[in-house]
């Protein structure tokens, strides 16, 4: 019988990830630099006044998620590849339950995404003069988006790490999982921008939560196979 609990193992993995990241700052730098560079390039080239008023909710919502998604991809895909590259994967595999590894890495990706959203979204709204009527609705969409994107990124990162760490493979595997999610996130963000009512984001939110929940559930069953075989 194992002396540790799943929760304590998951928190140990999360703690290790946070400590290692705060010391190396590899993922934080990649995500932050990519996010800020893309944001400034978009703001400089397009700016708030280059878009017709009637197109603003559509284009600004789509541009926001393009910036967030690509910035996130640059950092989140490393979470398992770095274990294989540093030869720590086998050491970790022998010491921790697969589900604890997945949970710890998932929570770490969730924290990274939350940090990215907290940095980029307010800056984007300011630089692009993106007025959001439903701030609470946007916050709910961003929170649900972070949960769903973190689960997708974590399981895909695990698969590519076992397939010799190809970031191209990360992109290819992500498309069928991420594309519908991004479409719903853009719709939810657009709805939050247009209406102060929380109910306006509900149709998109249902889709985001359903897809995120489905990916998370499948990942819990799939991850032990990916991690050990």
């Amino acid at each position: 019988m194992r002396a540790s609990t799943l929760l304590s193992e998951s928190l140990a993995v999360l703690g290790k990830e946070l400590t290692a990241e705060l010391r190396s700052r590899v993922a934080l730098n990649a995500i932050g630099l990519f996010g800020l560079t893309t944001l400034i390039a978009v703001a400089y080239q397009i700016g708030p006044y280059q878009i017709q008023e009637q197109d603003r909710p559509y284009l600004l919502s789509a541009l926001l998620w393009i910036i967030l998604f690509f910035a996130a991809t640059s950092g989140l895909s490393r979470v398992f590849v770095k274990e294989e590259d540093a030869h720590t994967a086998k050491t970790l595999r022998l010491a921790a339950r697969p589900l604890a590894v997945f949970a710890g890495k998932y929570l770490f990706n969730l924290i990274l995404l939350s940090a990215l959203f907290s940095l980029i979204v307010p800056l984007y709204c300011a630089l692009m003069s993106y007025r959001v009527r439903g701030v609470a609705g946007l916050a709910v969409v961003l929170a649900a988006g972070a949960v769903a994107l973190a689960s997708t990124s974590t399981i895909v990162a695990a698969i590519i790490a076992r397939a010799s760490g190809s970031t191209t493979l990360f992109a290819i595997l992500s498309v069928p999982l991420v594309l519908p999610l991004l479409v719903m996130l853009i719709q939810g963000t657009r709805a939050a921008a247009a209406s102060a009512e929380l109910a306006a984001v509900l149709p998109a939110l249902q889709g985001i939560v359903s897809l995120g929940g489905a990916v998370l559930t499948v990942s819990v069953y799939l991850f032990p196979v990916v991690w050990h075989d």
Partner: peptide
Amino acid sequence: MASPDMAVYEEL
């Protein structure tokens, strides 16, 4: 287990 293809965390 300890083997040449195993490592511990260099940041820690």
